[in-house]
Structures are given as structure tokens and as C-alpha cells.
């Protein structure tokens, strides 16, 4: 720069300012067109105009926010997130920018990023319950359980009877290995009317994990009254009945469960146990083999199968199964509710 004469430098600046003023005017016009189209729900066209406006003046206030909204409404969430990121860069104090960026991240399943943005937004509007609910869900989905618990507690302080919040809090507590507290939350949710979908199943599952089989059966049956095809409820009902020594009922539920989902490992395993118990070795063998096929990494089926083979005098095959058990050396507690197949996806 020091090599350029001062006069030329001055002229250049004047020219730039003139061009810039015209560009700003054009950019404003393009942006206005984009906004009009957005209002008509023509988001794709609106996006074109917002982009044109950006090419003319990338510093126009609110332009990235509007572009992001158009992307968001046309469900192009990664592009929306990129636009909102620019909006945040342009105005790091903007509640809207943080909130919308957070929502976009959430939609892109970037839950940890979502939680960070939504937390910033909620600092600006602490009583925005919709925002806090999504923030809580983001914490939950990104395994930030202590923060999720705090958010859900806040939401319950505003609405103590919210069944969905009780259930979500229960799931977080379950995932945090606080099963008794989780049960309390599910029990609170069950007082709502109508009972939320999966609510009885969730409570039943928590009872099941605590070996409270009678109560578990009651809840699974309640779930099946409204959702007769609920495979998980059928399976765990069968398992609970088996542990309560009601084998005939257990078998009925397990077979119904398998009719709905032939790849249900637990149902195959339990059915194998029941059949082995009454010396129906051939069918028990088929069940155990099926359970092993579905998930060979679980030691329980290998162990049960090995025990059956051993009782049949097939020691070599039994030993082979026992060796597999030893290799697996499993240390697995029952999975948390959140991880069960078919459970909630935020």
C-alpha cells in the first residue's frame, strides 16, 4: 500500500463507495423480494433472491437469518444451519440466531451443538418453555444427563403435571442408572389422562429391571390394551410371566411376539428356556440357535444352549458353547429404556 500514491488511493475509495451504495440498494431490493416470496411459502425462490442479495452485500442486517429461515422452512436443515451460523457470527447477541441455529442443529441430529446454542438462547429468554423443552431433549439425546435432568426439573416446576416431561425425565434417570427415581417419574406420568403412548411399557420395563415382575406384567398388559401389536410389551410380558413361574402364559405372549417380529432375540431365548424346561429339546435347540443367530455376542443364549446340550449328554458341543461364553466375558446390565429398539427418536 505504501507504494500507491495517496491521490490514486483516494480516487479508488470514492469509486468503491459509489459502487457499494448501488449494490446495497440492489441487495435490499433482492432481500425484499426474497421476504415477499417467503411469506407466500415460495421458499426455494426466496432462497435464490436472498443469495443474490448476499452476493451484492453480505453485510445486510438480517439477511442470513432470513436465508436460514427459508432453508429451515423448506427442510434443508444443513444449509439452514450454515446460514444461521453466519447470522450468529454477524450478531452473537441475537436470541433468534442462536435459537434457530440450535433448532437446525437439532434437526440435523447434532444434539450437542444444538444444546450449546439453545442454552445461549435460553439465557436470553429463560421462560421460553418451548425452547427449554428442546434444550432438554438435546441434552438427553447428546447424553448430557445431569443437564437434561436439570432442564426437565425446570419444566416440571412450571408444569408439574406434564406427562411427556415426566417420561423424558424418567428415561434420563434410567439411563443415569437411577432406576428408582426413574420409576417415580413414570408413575407420575401415568396419572395423566390420557396416558402417553409407550408410558405403560416404559413403567413396566422399569419394574422388570427391578425384578418387580407382578407390577411389570400389569403395566405391559395395560400397554397392550391400547397397542395390541406392541412387540416389546409382548416380549417383556412373556419374560416377566416366565420369571413369575406362569410358563403357559409366558409362552403365549412370546409366540405372539415372534409372530410379529421373527427377529426378536429375547423371545427366542425365553421360549427356548421354557421348552428346555419341559424337555422339548429339539424345539428348544431351534430357539436357542435362532437367538444366537440374531445376536451371537450375547452370552446368555450360548450359556443356556450349552446347558441344554450338556443335559443331553452332548458334552463336546456344550463345551464349545461354554467356551464362547467365556470369550464373551460379558458384563452387561439390562439396557436403558432409551436404547431399546423402537424407542423414542427425538
Amino acid at each position: 500500500m505504501s507504494m500507491i500514491p495517496a491521490a490514486i488511493r483516494f480516487l479508488s475509495l470514492l469509486l468503491l463507495a459509489a459502487q457499494s451504495g448501488a449494490a446495497v440498494q440492489d441487495a435490499v431490493a433482492e432481500a425484499a423480494r426474497g421476504t415477499a416470496l417467503s411469506r407466500e411459502g415460495k421458499y426455494e425462490l426466496a432462497i435464490q433472491h436472498y443469495k443474490a442479495a448476499l452476493r451484492l452485500d453480505s453485510h445486510l442486517p438480517g439477511l442470513y437469518l432470513n436465508l436460514g429461515l427459508a432453508y429451515f422452512k423448506s427442510k434443508r436443515l444443513p444449509e439452514a444451519a450454515a446460514a444461521f451460523e453466519q447470522a450468529v457470527r454477524a450478531d452473537s447477541e441475537s436470541f433468534q440466531a442462536h435459537a434457530l441455529l440450535g433448532m437446525s442443529y437439532y434437526g440435523c441430529t447434532r444434539y450437542a451443538d444444538a444444546a450449546a446454542q439453545l442454552k445461549l438462547a435460553s439465557n436470553a429468554q429463560p421462560d421460553n418453555l418451548e425452547l427449554r423443552y428442546t434444550l432438554a431433549q438435546s441434552y438427553l439425546a447428546s447424553n448430557q444427563y445431569p443437564q437434561a435432568v436439570a432442564e426437565f426439573h425446570f419444566l416440571l416446576s412450571k408444569n408439574p403435571d406434564s406427562a411427556p416431561v415426566h417420561i423424558l425425565l424418567g428415561e434420563v434417570l434410567d439411563a443415569s442408572n437411577q432406576i428408582e427415581a426413574a420409576t417415580t417419574e413414570f408413575e407420575a406420568a401415568m396419572k395423566a389422562s390420557p396416558v402417553p403412548p409407550d408410558g405403560h411399557f416404559g413403567l413396566g420395563y422399569l419394574y422388570w429391571k427391578q425384578q418387580r415382575y407382578e407390577e411389570a406384567c400389569h403395566e405391559f398388559e395395560a400397554e397392550l390394551e391400547t397397542q395390541p401389536q406392541h412387540t416389546q410389551a409382548l416380549t417383556y410380558l412373556g419374560d416377566a410371566e416366565m420369571h413369575a413361574d406362569r410358563n403357559q402364559r409366558a409362552e403365549t405372549h412370546l409366540r405372539r411376539s415372534l409372530a410379529l417380529d421373527a427377529n426378536n432375540r429375547l423371545a427366542h431365548l425365553d421360549l427356548g428356556i421354557l421348552l428346555a424346561g419341559r424337555n422339548e429339546s429339539a424345539e428348544a435347540t431351534r430357539c436357542f440357535r435362532e437367538a444366537i443367530r440374531i445376536d451371537p455376542s450375547k452370552p446368555d443364549a450360548h450359556y443356556r444352549f450349552g446347558r441344554l446340550l450338556s443335559s443331553l449328554g452332548r458334552q463336546q458341543e456344550a463345551q464349545a458353547e461354554f467356551e464362547k461364553v467365556k470369550k464373551l466375558a460379558a458384563d452387561e446390565p439390562p439396557p436403558p429404556l432409551l436404547s431399546l429398539p423402537g424407542r423414542r427418536v427425538p
Binding site: 450375547k298 452370552p299 446368555d300 450359556y303 443356556r304 450349552g306 446347558r307 466375558a329 460379558a330 458384563d331
Partner: peptide, 30 residues
């Protein structure tokens, strides 16, 4: 896995925990 040493006599033992059903809990857990 636990061990069950069955005394066969003459101070000889065979380990039979798996066959006897005491090597692991019923769900095959260590």
C-alpha cells in the same frame, strides 16, 4: 466363571461348574 471341583476320589478332582450350572448366573453373566 466359578469353579466347582468334584472330588472323584484318590484326591483327584474334575471341574464341573458349567455342566452343574454354577459357573455363571442363569443369564450367563460373569
Amino acid at each position: 466363571n466359578n469353579s466347582l471341583f468334584h472330588n472323584k476320589g484318590g484326591a483327584h478332582f474334575e471341574e464341573v461348574a458349567f455342566d452343574a450350572g454354577v459357573a455363571l448366573t442363569e443369564d450367563g453373566k460373569f
